[in-house]
């Protein structure tokens, strides 16, 4: 059974709200306008995919949403907070508590075991070391790697490493998960499994997911797909091809 975008977003609170968000790299004639007025909302429990050609601004938008890059203009609130109005340390602490990251290149620290890698967000949030590692092991069991907790990342396959990265992104129970090309380094079957995992986690934890991808094979997992081009959102479709709106306005988004 498929769900429409309206089904997913109806009645659910907005986790991320972006209005007229702009971002320009450089200045003068060499300036690159990466975002040219983005309007988009991400709802609790929703899996939103950002798609589009390279250089269209997907990664810039996900960076702004995740609070690792400051926007130049417009408004953007995440869980009701505006990153641009927060001090650096407060922003960092907010990210640590509320945002999970899954990266294209996994970014697992190669000199830590996978349990230690997964425990890092808990340590950042002040958990005791032993408790953090135990919780990390439990999380790894949930992603099917309970027997590999003492292995180093380089001993795992790409799919396994991405599962570790997902475990790391979820272990501290964030409210927003941002994923950058989570399946691009994986084969089709593994990519499907990773997306199933993300989909299940999102729906069961009321987690908002924003996934940047080029991989059309995983579009089926999206609740909504935002197509970007040249710093704009061209259209937002419902998952599985259900179109929600073209040139979305604020009313259409909410």
């Amino acid at each position: 059974m498929t769900r429409s975008a309206a089904d997913v977003t109806r009645g659910r609170p907005v986790a991320v709200r972006c209005r007229s968000v702009t971002k320009t790299y450089g200045s003068g004639q060499s300036a690159v306008r990466a975002l040219r007025g983005i309007d988009i909302d991400v709802h609790t429990g929703e899996l939103l995919m950002l798609v589009g050609p390279s250089g269209c601004g997907k990664t810039t938008l996900i960076s702004v949403i995740a609070g690792v890059l400051d926007r130049d203009g417009g408004e953007c609130t995440v869980l009701g907070e505006d990153f641009n109005k927060m001090r650096s340390d407060a922003k960092t602490a907010f990210r640590g508590r509320n945002v999970g990251f899954v990266f294209q290149a996994f970014n697992l620290i190669p000199t830590l075991t996978i349990a230690e890698n997964v425990s890092v967000p808990l340590l950042i949030n002040g958990h005791k070391r032993n408790a953090a590692v135990e919780q990390a092991k439990s999380m790894l069991s949930q992603v099917g790697l309970g027997t590999r907790v003492n292995d180093y990342p380089n001993r795992l396959s790409g799919g396994q490493q991405q599962r570790v990265a997902i475990a790391r992104a979820l272990v501290h129970k964030p409210k927003l998960l941002v994923c950058d090309e989570p399946t691009s380094a994986l084969d089709h079957v593994t990519g499907q499994k990773v997306m199933e995992l993300l989909r299940d986690v999102a729906s069961s934890n009321d987690l908002s997911l924003v996934v940047v991808t080029h991989d059309q094979r995983i579009f089926e997992f999206a609740d909504r797909i935002a197509e970007m081009d040249d710093g704009h959102i061209e259209q937002i479709s419902g998952g599985l091809g259900h179109k929600v709106a073209e040139h979305p306005s604020e009313s259409a988004l909410t």
Binding site: V68, T92, A93, G96, A105, N107, V120, P121
Partner: peptide, 18 residues
Amino acid sequence: DNLRYFGTLKAMGTRDGT
């Protein structure tokens, strides 16, 4: 060599002071 991982830690919420 570890810059990417320091960046990852920073993104995940590790303060500059830490």
